[in-house]
Amino acid sequence: MVSIITRHPFPTGNAEEGIAVLQENAHDLLEGLEADPSSLGDALSTTLTLAEAHCLMDPRAAIYPTRDAWVTAMQVGSAVFATALAPKGNVRCRIAHKDLTLQATGPQWYVHPGAWLTAFYLAVACREKDRITALCQVPLSLLRENGAQFEEHDYAWIDTLQTYWLGGQDLVPKLVSAVDGTDPDTVSDPETVSKLVYPPMEMFHRFIRKDHEGFTRALTQALELHKQYWSEEDRAVNIGGLVALAPLAIVCLAHDAGMPIEVESEYLPAVLIGRNWCGEFPT
Results as ranks from 00 to 15, higher is better:
30 L>C: 15
29 L>T: 00
19 I>H: 06
10 F>P: 04
27 H>F: 09
13 G>P: 06
34 E>Y: 11
34 E>M: 15
13 G>I: 10
10 F>V: 10
9 P>V: 08
35 A>V: 00
15 A>K: 07
44 L>R: 10
25 N>M: 12
39 S>W: 00
36 D>C: 06
45 S>E: 08
20 A>T: 08
25 N>K: 14
29 L>M: 03
39 S>G: 07
24 E>Q: 15
40 L>K: 03
25 N>W: 04
45 S>H: 05
15 A>H: 07
17 E>Q: 12
42 D>T: 02
21 V>N: 02
45 S>Y: 02
9 P>F: 12
25 N>V: 07
42 D>Q: 08
17 E>N: 07
5 I>D: 07
7 R>T: 13
42 D>H: 03
42 D>K: 03
38 S>V: 03
15 A>V: 11
17 E>R: 11
33 L>F: 00
45 S>D: 06
25 N>A: 08
13 G>Y: 07
40 L>S: 02
41 G>S: 12
37 P>Y: 03
28 D>L: 11
31 E>S: 10
7 R>S: 12
19 I>L: 15
17 E>C: 04
23 Q>A: 15
20 A>F: 03
35 A>T: 00
5 I>V: 15
16 E>D: 13
11 P>E: 11
9 P>S: 12
34 E>I: 04
12 T>W: 04
27 H>E: 12
33 L>H: 00
12 T>D: 12
36 D>H: 08
41 G>C: 07
22 L>S: 02
45 S>M: 09
10 F>I: 11
40 L>M: 09
24 E>C: 08
22 L>E: 01
34 E>P: 04
6 T>Y: 09
19 I>N: 11
9 P>D: 11
42 D>M: 09
40 L>P: 05
12 T>A: 14
45 S>C: 05
16 E>L: 15
23 Q>S: 15
26 A>C: 14
14 N>S: 13
37 P>M: 03
13 G>L: 13
45 S>P: 01
41 G>V: 01
6 T>S: 14
6 T>D: 11
17 E>L: 12
24 E>L: 15
9 P>C: 11
6 T>P: 04
10 F>R: 10
34 E>A: 15
22 L>K: 01
37 P>T: 01
21 V>Y: 01
34 E>C: 11
7 R>D: 02
5 I>P: 12
38 S>Y: 03
39 S>C: 05
6 T>N: 13
14 N>Q: 10
18 G>P: 01
39 S>V: 04
43 A>E: 06
35 A>N: 05
30 L>S: 08
